[in-house]
Design a protein around this nucleic acid. Structure first.
Length: 474
RNA sequence: GGCCCCAUCGUCUAGUGGUUAGGACACGGCUCUUUCAAGGCCGCGGCACGGGUUCGAGUCCCGUUGGGGCCA
């Protein structure tokens, strides 16, 4: 897959403890781009923020990516293991005069900021550190004076030719000499990103729109580093139904959450692929192979998109409808609360319920229905379908069913209708209470298929239990 | 607040100067039917607004409004 001459792209999540669906989409697009262009997709963990970079937090992201099937070609690299690289780069930048030490204390900076605010102008760093001579700078550093390292920003407009947004200009005076390394020696985010991208020879940066405003900083940094500036493609944000950035608290923002709700990874991938990218021709259900073959940056939209859970559910149902029964069974099994029936019955149950379930959870529940007698009955259904004479009617049904010649749906169907005719009542007066007795609910697969699948013994047992129960209720 | 981005049905989107503005989700109806789905058919519904450019703008330019992001 990888190729030494193709483009090199990366997905660089920070280890927040869960994989955001927006991040998953970014990872996917990077991967698709790499596959399409015969390039290399690299995974890098941006764990410079020591405090929240526990290993488990990144492990969870790794396993979520793995679950989605987004396999990387290189990495994962961890920034926390690359501090020497950042220090060396900072030293080099200082010695080349591309960056400088600034000795202001936080208090001094704060005062300047307050002053600027009071005067109603926006705060920018004074640039005082620029004026300090290299000799003095070295001397003060050696003397143990505290300093941060700042990048000397060029006094020129920075132009970004974004692959999805086109030409974006950032006037020079909008940016000040930002901090690369903190006074405690800790390298900061933007600096690490660029050092890494340069070091890893990243050619294309596909990332969220939220980084567009940071891009001029990065461009300046790449130039200072003497590294080629990669091409950029900024993706629109993924929003919640409230049109705000999809957040964890809003719910449904984490890939893991959808996994736990019984969504299949290929459905989530398909859904995410279409959030901001379109293959054209009104196609919606696409395999990974198709995406890898057809993905292109030109077909990425610039506008943000709302994450619609309803459509995800629909898409999941589409995958469910197409999945081989054996596979669906294996994948729904873990979600069956009370286990599944023996294989042939389970497979038959899958076919009976695949158009009725939208998630693996729902399918799991349906399967368990055949493995365990209902423990309770839908109260609404009881009210609606149970009348004073129901118990007696069901007893006649039980007697009738005990004598059917073969326990198949058509036979059972015929038997019940015959009985209804004998009793001069409508078949549905028998059908609805029977469904409730067998499944505990009023909705589901065609009744006679369910009865046939349950088997004589189980069906009659459930019917008797139910009769007992409604007699007791009176 | 400064800078930047975005703008086609409620939502995801197709559309790259000439279209009855197409598809999908959701919604409503019909059909199928013992129920619920799925499926099929039909329907509802959109180019944010105002100026330009042009013979002709959803499509190009400017502004307004609205939404979002970054910095502080």
């Amino acid at each position: 897959m990888q190729n030494s001459t193709g483009p090199r792209v990366r997905f660089a999540p920070s280890p927040t403890g869960f994989l955001h669906v927006g991040g998953a989409r970014t990872a996917l697009y990077n991967l698709l781009f790499a596959r399409r262009e015969k390039g290399t997709y690299i995974l890098r963990i941006e764990d410079t923020d020591v405090e929240r970079s526990k290993h488990e937090l990144s492990d969870q992201i790794l396993s979520a990516l793995d679950w989605l099937g987004l396999e990387h070609d290189e990495g994962p690299y961890r920034q926390s293991a690359r501090y020497d690289l950042y220090r060396a780069a900072a030293d080099r930048l200082i010695s080349e005069g591309k960056a400088y030490r600034a000795f202001e204390t936080p208090e001094e900076l704060d005062a300047e900021r307050k002053k600027a605010e009071a005067q109603g102008r926006s705060y920018r760093y004074s640039g005082a550190g620029r004026e300090i001579s290299p000799d003095e700078s070295d001397r003060r550093a050696r003397a143990g004076e505290k300093f941060v390292v700042r990048l000397r920003m060029p006094a020129e407009t920075i132009v970004v030719d974004d692959l999805v947004r086109g030409r974006v200009e950032f006037p020079a005076d909008a940016l000040d000499d930002f901090v690369l390394v903190r006074s405690d020696g800790h390298p900061l985010y933007h600096f690490c990103v660029c050092v890494d991208d340069a070091d890893m020879r990243i050619t294309h940066v596909l990332r969220g729109d939220d980084h567009l405003a940071n891009t001029p900083k990065h461009v300046a940094l790449f130039r200072a580093l003497g590294a080629p500036v990669p091409a950029f493609a900024h993706l629109g944000m993924i929003l919640g139904t409230d049109r705000k950035k999809l957040s964890k608290r809003y719910g449904a923002a984490a890939v893991e959450e959808w996994r736990d709700r019984g969504i299949f990874p290929e459905a989530l991938v398909n859904f995410l692929a279409l959030l901001g990218w379109s293959p054209g021709e009104d196609r919606e259900i696409l395999s990974r192979e198709e995406m890898e073959r057809e993905f292109s940056l030109e077909r990425i939209g610039a506008s943000p998109s709302v994450f619609d859970p309803e459509k995800l559910l629909w898409m999941n149902a589409q995958y469910m409808a197409r999945m081989p029964a054996e596979e669906l069974l294996e994948r729904a099994k873990p979600h069956a609360p009370a286990g599944v029936p023996e294989k042939d019955a389970a497979l038959a149950a899958i076919e009976l319920h695949r158009t009725r379930a939208r998630t693996a959870i729902e399918m799991g529940r349906a399967l368990s229905m055949y493995a365990q007698d209902p423990e309770e009955y839908d109260p609404e259904g009881m009210k609606k379908n149970v009348r004073p004479e129901t118990a007696a009617e069901l007893e006649r049904l039980i007697a009738k069913l005990e004598n059917v010649s073969s326990w198949t749906a058509p036979e059972l169907d015929a038997a019940l209708r015959e009985l209804a005719a004998e009793m001069k009542i409508s078949a549905s007066r028998l059908i609805h209470p029977t469904r409730l007795a067998l499944t505990g609910v009023t909705v589901g697969a065609p009744l006679f298929d369910v009865v046939a699948l349950l088997g004589k013994e189980t069906a009659l047992r459930r019917l008797r239990k139910f009769v007992e129960r409604i007699r007791g209720d009176k």
